[in-house]
Simulated assay, not measured.
Amino acid sequence: MVAPLRRNLLADQAADLLLRRLAAGEWEVGAKLPGETTLAAELGVGRSTVREALRMLAGQGLLRARQGAGVFVERTEPVRGDGWESVLRAESIAAVVEVRNAIEVEAARLAAGRADEDDELAMRRALDRRAVAFAEGDREFVDADIDVHRAVVVAAHNPVLTELFETFVPRLTEAMVEMVELLGVRDRDPDPDADEHRALVDAVVSGDAEAAVAISRAHLEAMLAAVRRLGR
């Protein structure tokens, strides 16, 4: 029995441990992996964590899910590019960006129809703070960037959406700090996304829901594309 995982980022670590077991020959090419319940018990994590780990490995061509049959081994070692650690990091960040897309695009749409003067003031202040934080450090910049998006979410005036976003912020922060480092975002001066953030706030303030949605979605899709290129 494999010892349970005890650190953070369990999906990443579960994928790494499964990769080690593949490389050690525990399962040959063509073999069917144990079910999610069995793997979850072996790794000491939940089934959703196992499912995400299997998705990561499938994304690298190591595994293939067959509808109604299970998950099978396609390869026992990844194609080496920038290294498995970079692949795992990119996969983890991409998953976070996908959730951002689900939350923030809808928040932008709602905020465009509900933002009041207090919301505008909060968004403008967050933009100003973000501009200053660009020169301060990765974590400071990420915190300030998230504050802009938080202000948009709050402007949607949906308490459930706000609670969902706040619950997500710790994971979001860690992923975005990693992304800023991996992509060298702060190496590009001036900030390449400053105008995009300002345009989002302008669209929300003007009540242009269509523009707010388009800007938010385009921003996150570009981010997702950049992150996925890291995992290739």
Rank of each mutant, 00 (worst) to 15 (best):
R198N: 02
R100N: 14
V201A: 14
A94F: 02
G231C: 04
F165H: 04
V154W: 01
R55Q: 10
V142T: 02
V205A: 05
I146N: 00
F134Q: 11
M176G: 00
V2M: 11
G30C: 08
L57F: 00
R51V: 03
A14F: 04
I93C: 01
A40K: 03
A90M: 09
A15E: 12
P159E: 05
V169A: 09
D82G: 03
E196C: 01
A102D: 15
A218D: 06
D138H: 04
E117W: 13
R75L: 12
L172Y: 11
M223H: 03
A155E: 01
V213T: 10
V204M: 05
S48D: 14
W84V: 11
D193F: 07
V185C: 00
Q13N: 11
V2Y: 06
K32S: 15
E77R: 15
M123A: 06
S206D: 11
G70M: 14
D16R: 14
D202G: 04
L63Q: 03
L43D: 04
R150L: 08
V132P: 03
S86A: 10
A15V: 13
G207M: 03
T173N: 06
A58R: 14
V79F: 04
A31V: 12
G30S: 10
G113E: 09
R64L: 01
R100H: 14
D118M: 13
R7V: 02
R55H: 13
A156Y: 03
A90E: 09
A107T: 02
A135T: 01
R125A: 11
F168Y: 14
E77W: 15
G83M: 08
R89L: 15
A226H: 04
E42M: 10
E181M: 07
L18Y: 12
R100F: 10
A133C: 00
N101V: 15
A222D: 13
R109C: 13
E140A: 04
V132W: 10
L224M: 11
A214F: 08
G70W: 13
A126W: 02
M223F: 00
E174D: 09
D193Q: 02
E42F: 13
M123H: 06
